[in-house]
Amino acid sequence: MAVGARSGHDEPEDRPESERSAEVTPDRAESDGDSPDGGGRAPGKPRSFWKELPLLIGIALILALLIKTFLVQAFSIPSDSMQNTLQRGDRVLVDKLTPWFGSEPQRGEVVVFHDPGGWLVDGESTPQPNLAQKFLSFIGLMPSAEEKDLIKRVIAVGGDTVECRKNGPVVVNGKALDEQSFIYPGNTPCNDEPFGPITVPQGRIWVMGDHRQNSLDSRYHQELPGQGTVSTDEVVGRAIVVAWPINRWATLPVPSTFDQPGLNAAMGMAPGALGVAGALPLVLWRRRRLTAGRTAG
């Protein structure tokens, strides 16, 4: 019985020495590694802060570039064309994410867009940046300093008919806009440059500055391709907040006049209503077939 007990716990003596050693070695190594007495390797020293700093800076720059490219970008206001909503020198944050998901500019939004061609010849221009400004603008840590971008308010979108007669309001799809809450005090809606009626092509927008008598907007570029409208492909994004200076921090909501009932009347039913109207006959037809099938069964 003593032999039987030993055979349950000890190695058989008739096994080769090489096999016994091979089985013991991993256990011994594991024991050494876990030994609190320093039998294993001493843990390595952590890297110094100065060695980690380049890696941290690189990660921060990559994140900043990704945010600037896909999420939010800062822009500096170069002119007075959007007073009093925006002042020269204000920094605004522009939402660049929603256009990636197919969101189209809506009436009343303040949007940043690339120069469609010829708008900045005699209008708003951007100062020439130095090398440091170019780099910081590229990664999004400073407002865009070199790109030829403009900022205006969307007045009409594709399919809308817009016009403005002398001494009259801006009219979209037969509805007069009440713009007193955002156009520059003392300005008229369009006395300096009446226009229309103009039907905005699909995929384009009609834009105007809030400082009407100091804005070379859609009204002044009707001789160019697009007849003053801007392609939605040129839109960088919607300005959502004034971020700088701190004392001018404010959001940029859509004025209530653009939410008035009937503004979409000229284009027929709203897209949602059209979808319901188109789907209703199909649903009724399908229900009729199901009912007939159950009756027959």
Rank of each mutant, 00 (worst) to 15 (best):
R219H: 06
W119E: 05
E146H: 10
V172Y: 05
R47P: 13
L86Y: 08
W119D: 01
P185M: 04
P143M: 01
A5Q: 08
G8W: 13
P78C: 10
V276E: 10
I240R: 02
V241R: 07
N214E: 14
D160V: 04
V276R: 12
V154N: 01
L177V: 04
T188A: 06
L280T: 15
T199E: 13
D160W: 01
A145H: 04
I155N: 01
R20P: 00
A176T: 06
A2N: 12
L66R: 02
L97N: 01
C190F: 05
L66G: 12
R88W: 00
A156D: 04
V24W: 13
Q222Y: 02
L274E: 15
S81G: 09
M1C: 04
T229I: 02
G186E: 04
T295K: 14
H114Q: 14
N84I: 10
A270K: 13
K51I: 10
P78K: 03
Q227G: 07
K68M: 06
N167R: 09
V162T: 03
E11Y: 11
L224M: 09
I67H: 09
A5N: 06
L86N: 03
K45P: 08
M142Q: 15
P105W: 05
I77L: 07
P261L: 09
F182D: 06
F138E: 03
G209H: 07
V283L: 15
E179S: 03
G174S: 02
V254E: 08
T251H: 06
D233A: 13
P255I: 02
I59Q: 12
Q227S: 12
